[in-house]
């Protein structure tokens, strides 16, 4: 029996950062020595390759593997920056039903045989068959949400659906937090999101809204590889937590304004 962690990254709502999260955690975990397979289950809307900067290296895809046109090993793209990171790309011209739950389970088992210690599955948005296919092989789930009403509502729904798929206690990532807005009572804070969602989810990490995500996605170099990127740092922390380390949550609410500095000065003094 293999001990690989098979984690589906999901959210319900689109555009909250599933693919970015998958790419960043994959890179961070691989840089820590894990053998990581990233599996793009968003069939028909392939994007994980682009965020990783591997779009020009695709020969075969996930559907080619399950339909027997190539071997699994031929389809997995090895990242040249990190040899122990592999990507199994989605098919772009097929639909979300091209891979059945049974085929997904088989794929995951085969990847485990190849010695991968982490298998991250990028789930499509929505709660239909694509979600069911993507979650079929997973034994854990990360729910990504933004501190905003519609994505939190969808996250709550997804938590219920994950339970129905026998994935207990999903882990929560609050993405795109703006500490200043939270401080000014203009945005939901992490504690608010947690309170509303209740005990059914466990907080895994908080990623600040960060421009380096945009520039790094543009370049195809995930932010977790960039020194000095706050979001990248947050993703590296999350990766360490996934490996079982205790990592304190980042202080995102550091007050750098004049009064904050003044306060610090007095407190320190």
């Amino acid at each position: 029996m293999s001990t690989a962690k098979v984690i589906v990254i999901t959210s319900g709502k689109g555009g909250v950062g599933k693919t970015t999260t998958t790419a960043n955690l994959g890179m961070a975990l691989a840089s820590m020595g894990e053998k990581v397979a990233l599996l793009d289950a968003d069939i028909g809307l392939r994007n994980l390759d682009l965020v990783l900067g591997l779009e020009n290296r695709i020969v075969y895809d996930i559907v080619d593997v399950v339909e027997g046109r190539c071997k699994l090993r031929q389809a997995v793209i090895k990242d040249k920056r990190l040899q122990n990171l592999g990507l199994l790309p989605a098919a772009q011209t097929r639909d979300k039903n091209a891979v059945t739950p049974e085929q997904m389970i088989k794929l995951v088992a085969d990847l485990q045989e190849e010695g991968y210690t982490f298998i991250l599955i990028d789930c499509p948005a929505g709660i239909e068959q694509g979600f069911k296919n993507a979650t079929a092989g997973a034994n854990q789930a990360i729910v990504v949400t933004n501190p905003e009403v519609s994505s939190v509502r969808d996250a709550d729904r997804i938590v219920g659906l994950l339970e129905a798929q026998d994935i207990e206690e999903p882990m929560l990532i609050v993405n795109r937090l703006r500490p200043k807005m939270v401080k000014n009572n203009e945005m939901l804070g992490v504690d608010d999101v947690q309170e509303v969602l209740g005990n059914s989810v466990k907080l895994l990490g908080v990623v600040p809204d960060d421009e380096t995500i945009i520039t790094s996605t543009n370049k195809g170099e995930p932010a977790s590889m960039i020194e000095g990127s706050k979001a990248g740092q947050a993703y590296r922390n999350i990766a360490r937590r996934l490996r079982g380390e205790e990592v304190p949550f980042m202080n995102l609410e550091e007050d750098t304004g004049f009064f904050g500095k003044l306060k610090k000065f007095f407190v320190a003094g």
Partner: peptide, 21 residues
């Protein structure tokens, strides 16, 4: 009453989730 965007968001969410659940 606290009418900050954060509080309003939280109250609305709480109610809608109650109904959803």
């Amino acid at each position: 009453a606290d009418t900050s965007a954060k509080t309003v968001a939280k109250d609305r969410l709480r109610l809608v989730l109650m109904h959803d659940r």
